[in-house]
Design a protein around this nucleic acid. Sequence first.
DNA 1: CCACTACTTGACGTTTACGTTAACGTAAGT
DNA 2: ACTTACGTTAACGTAAACGTCAAGTAGTGG
Lengths: 130, 130
Amino acid sequence: MDAERTWSIAELADEFGVTLRTIRFYEEQGLLTPARNGTRRIFADGDRVRLGLVLRGKRLGFPLDEIKKIIGMYDAEPGETGQLRYLLDQIEDRRKELEQRRRDIDAALSELDELERRCRADLNRLTGRA
Amino acid sequence: MDAERTWSIAELADEFGVTLRTIRFYEEQGLLTPARNGTRRIFADGDRVRLGLVLRGKRLGFPLDEIKKIIGMYDAEPGETGQLRYLLDQIEDRRKELEQRRRDIDAALSELDELERRCRADLNRLTGRA
DNA sequence: CCACTACTTGACGTTTACGTTAACGTAAGT
DNA sequence: ACTTACGTTAACGTAAACGTCAAGTAGTGG
């Protein structure tokens, strides 16, 4: 069983919950390189995997051009140590960014709590003696 | 002591760590309404307070037009119960968004951990038997 | 033959919060 | 008078990741 299944653009879009435009955009950016049947895009299994990697990268907060670099590296020489080290560096960068963003969010939540307390105090003052 | 001090645009920009362009933009958007001496902007104490509120709103993740609404409400009838309730609603919305974003970030961090583990395993495999 | 559906390329639009010139005015210091 | 600092308006530019037309092609069912 060779499992040479292929997918249309709509099938992939549907499966991954993205629009056709998104997939075409990713191809335009060099993130995907589907085969063609005439003008139509034919997606093989490798293309599916790549799309999954792109979307996963997005979930992790990587920008598309960074995703492109990383995926490209894996395509070229999967598992070469220099590339693994590069990827580890990128992971470290991303982790720091994410942790900073989480700190920012926590600070904002604290400020929100404080603001809410004051609002409720005002409200009590107004309705309490109405 | 009437403390009628005023500020130039540059002084305020400096104090709050924003650019002149930012302050002019806020005025353009109706977030600030400084007085004029001829064509030059003269900022009074109330303007300073407003700028502080705007930047605080930004730290909390509010978009500028939402900030404008909220500040406008406080200007109109500070402490009216309907407006306090509206503000409390907005706070609730923002809190939910922030908490969702924090969950997303935590999920991303977990995925990053997992990815890093695999990278390190690959790296060990490659360098271990070199 | 016609309609319908899926697909294509191309190109401009969207969003937010400013950045970046260009071209000019005004006031103080020397 | 000249320079320097500081200010002004107007208007176009930017980033990211697509959205949203428009106009055309290709294959399939009736």
